[in-house]
Amino acid sequence: MNAEPVEITPGDSMFELGRDRIATLASVADYLIPAAHGMPSAGEVVTAAQLRFVLRTRPDLFDPLIAALRYELGDDPSVRLAALAAHEPEAEAALQMVIVAGYYTDAGVRSRLGYQGQVAKPVNARDYPTYLEEGLLDKVIERGPIWRNPTTG
């Protein structure tokens, strides 16, 4: 969000959220997921487009997100998160979900994790299982039945 100017138009969820809350969200995002270990910060990644995507998919998150980003909770993300955790866990959960979902649905982040999404890899049942090649069931079978026979106890 830091990297991209936020375009705000009336009727947009961003418009309702407002610039101040968006700025607060960016600071919390950077606090939770900072740039480190070769990964970008969430503040950079969770752009207005990402935020729109998340809130369009999950409009139920909007109200608790508004609550979590209110001015009265101050400028320090750690203080804000501690207050939410203590008194408003639903708002805290919504804030975390919006940031995490915005971050991990980003193509660049996924690429750095080596993740291409949930990919279709059709099963080929003719492939001979490695566990049979290695004989990993042989001893299981050799040990014989392990079920308890009700008639003999």
Binding site: Y31, L113, Y115
Partner: peptide, 16 residues
């Protein structure tokens, strides 16, 4: 959950 710089370490350890 882990947050801060450790978040990335934990994700690398856990995801997949």
């Amino acid at each position: 959950q882990a947050w801060g710089p450790d978040h990335h370490i934990q994700m690398r350890a856990r995801f997949g």
